[in-house]
Amino acid sequence: MQKVIQLQNVKKSYNLDNVIVNALNGISFEVNKGELVAIMGPSGSGKSTAMQIIGSLDLPTEGRVFIEDVDITKLSHSNIAQLRGKKVGFIFQTFNLIPSLTALENVTLPMLFQDLNKTKQKQKAKELLALVGLQDRMDHLPPELSGGQRQRVAIARALANDPEIILADEPTGNLDSKTGGEIINLLLELNKKGTTVLIVTHDQNIAKRAKRIITIRDGLIAK
C-alpha cells in the first residue's frame, strides 16, 4: 500500500505568554492511500494541532512529516504552499469561505494559486459545484447560502486541485444532524472514489463509519 501521510515522532510546543505548552509529545502514524480515518480526542488533546501539521499549515517543533514521499519539514515556505494547494484539501468547521466572493469564485480560488488554465478552472469549478448539488447556487455569495450549502461549497473548493488528501476538521460541528449526515455521506462517497479522507470529530457515530480511528490524548496517541 502506498503511504500518503507519515508522521514520525512529531512534537509541537507553543510559547504562550512565556509558558511553553506542549501540544504534541511525539506521535507517529501512517495513513495509506484511500483510507478513511477518524481522529478523535477530547478538547485540548492536540488533535487539531496534529491536523494542522498533517495539512502542512504548521511545522512540527521536532520530528518529520511526509506527504507522499516529500518531507515537508525540509521545504521552503513557497514550496510548502504549492504542495499544500495541490495535495491537500481542507474542510473547516466554520466553512471559511471568502465572504466577498461567489460560490463559483471560492471554488476557483485554489486553482488560481496553482496557475491553471483559466477556462478550465471555471469549467472544473462548475463541475465540482454540480457534484455537491449546488449547480443553482453558483453565483451566490456565502452569506446568501445555508450552513449546509456553505459546507458543500467548501467541499467543492477542497476538491478543486484533485488533492490526495481531504482534511476535515469537525466538518459537521456547525450543522444540524440531518445536514451533517449529508455532508458525511458526501465525504464517504469521495473516499469510495479513492480520495484519502481524515476527519477530526467528537462524534462517535461519525467515527464508527470510519475504517480506522486514531485517538489522541494529551499529545500522544492513545492505545
Partner: peptide, 16 residues
Amino acid sequence: TRDIGVMKAIGAKDSD
C-alpha cells in the same frame, strides 16, 4: 486576516 489564512490553506504562497 482570516481570509488570508484561508487563502494560504488552499495554496496561496506568501508572494501571492
